[in-house]
Each structure stands twice: as structure tokens, then as C-alpha cells.
Amino acid sequence: MRFGDAWNSLRRAQKGKRGVSLYSRWVNRPLGRVFAAAAAAAGIGPNAVTAVSALATVAGLVVIAAVPVTIASGVGAAALLVVGFALDAADGQVARLTGASSRAGEWLDHVVDAGKMVGVHAAVLIGFTGSGRSGGPWLLLPLGYALVAVVLFVGLTLYSLLAPPSGPTPPPSTLRAVLLLPADYGILAVAFVLWGVPDLFIGVYAALLLATTGITALLARKWFRSLAGGSPASA
């Protein structure tokens, strides 16, 4: 399969935009589409793309946790995390394009995602300690963020499995896509460009945590009421 053919096929076979933040809609999915087309043209399967995504993410986390805090290390970590996230979007696109979807591949993708949700905040915790911020309040931020991220990830994953059949899908809301931005992993990944300016990064990190906590609470309430009442709710 040629790159151009794969690209055109993927453009016509994208997931719906409902419940997706603007970052994932305008940045992550298009970038993932480039990687997916390249992988398909090179004969690389979806599980291999998932593995490369995990490697890119781990490399970014190592930079955060083990490399001295500088502007360059922050930009490098952000780039690796952004690429890892885009490759995470690419593996599913490769699977759909090549007909190589499998339960094992979906399981692997979710396991890598779960590790990423915890690993990024563990890296921040280690990075804080290494840069001299080992006092109480600094430790609570990544610990709290990890908890919220896991609850959001598990809640969304289980709701997708347990939700009743849905009717016609409403059109996507731009306002909703904007409001979901703080909970998008891609926004957190981009925020690491500020890692080399610790005070500014901590302020942004804390703001994202606060916003994500609110979004998680609202979504959890909506999902619970949907499952309790047997009516579908958009994620």
C-alpha cells in the first residue's frame, strides 16, 4: 500500500468527533494519521506501532525523571510525549486500514494507555524530588493527578463496555470540545515545554489537575446516571 492511498483511505474512515477535545480532533488524530499511513506503507502492523508508541512515551518519561531540568529537556520530553500520543492514535487507524484489528491488540493498547496515565505523574514526582521539591505539597500534586487520571481512564473504559446501545449520534459541540481540553493527555504532554521553568510549569500543572478533577466528577456523574437509568450518555 502506498502512503498516498493509505492517507486518503484514512481520511475517509475517521472516528466521530463527538466527545473529543479540540487537541485530539485537530492535532493528535491528524498527526496519528500521518504515522498510520507511513506504517501501513511500510508494512508495519498495529501492535508494532503500539510498541513504538510505548517506547517514545517511556523515553519522554525518562527525560522528565532523570535528566537535569532545563528548557531543552522540557521541550525534548514534550516532543517525545506528543509523538507517543500520536502513535497511540495511529495504531487503531492502522488496524482499521489493514483489517488487522484483534482483541489482543485492543488489550495491548489499553494496557499501554493505563501505564502511561500513571507513569507520567510518577515521572513528575521523581523530577520534583530531583530538583529539590521534595516537600509535602509538591508531592501531593502528581499523586493527586495520578489518582484523577486513573479514575477518568477506568471510568471511560468501563462506560464504553457497559453503556446501553445508543441512538442517533448528536452533532459534535465545539464548546464541549474546548471544555474537554484540560483533560486531554495531549495538552498535558505539550505543557512539559514549560518543565524548564519550574514555577510556571507547576502553576499550569496544578491548573490542569484542578480542571481535570472537575471534568472527571461531571463525567462520572453523567456516566453513573446513564448506567443506572439505562439510557445512553455521550462520553
Rank of each mutant, 00 (worst) to 15 (best):
P168F: 06
T213P: 02
F192Q: 04
P168W: 05
L175E: 04
P182C: 04
P168E: 15
T216W: 02
L180C: 05
V190N: 07
V193G: 09
K222W: 00
L210T: 14
L141Y: 02
G186N: 10
A183C: 08
P172R: 02
V193E: 04
Y159W: 11
W138S: 08
L210N: 04
F224P: 00
A206E: 09
A191E: 10
L181S: 08
L219N: 03
V197H: 11
L218V: 06
G186R: 04
V190C: 11
L218Y: 08
G196H: 11
L161D: 13
G135T: 15
L161H: 13
W223H: 13
F224H: 12
P182G: 03
A149W: 07
F201S: 01
T174F: 09
G155A: 09
L140Y: 02
L162E: 14
V178S: 01
L209N: 05
V148A: 10
V150C: 02
A183T: 10
A146F: 05
S166A: 15
S166G: 15
L141T: 04
Y145K: 03
A149F: 12
L139H: 03
F192G: 08
P198A: 01
S160E: 15
Y185C: 00
L158R: 13
L140H: 03
P172S: 08
A206F: 12
L218E: 07
L200T: 15
G155P: 09
I187D: 01
I187G: 01
A183K: 03
T157H: 13
V151N: 05
G135Y: 02
D199P: 10
A146N: 04
W223I: 01
R221G: 03
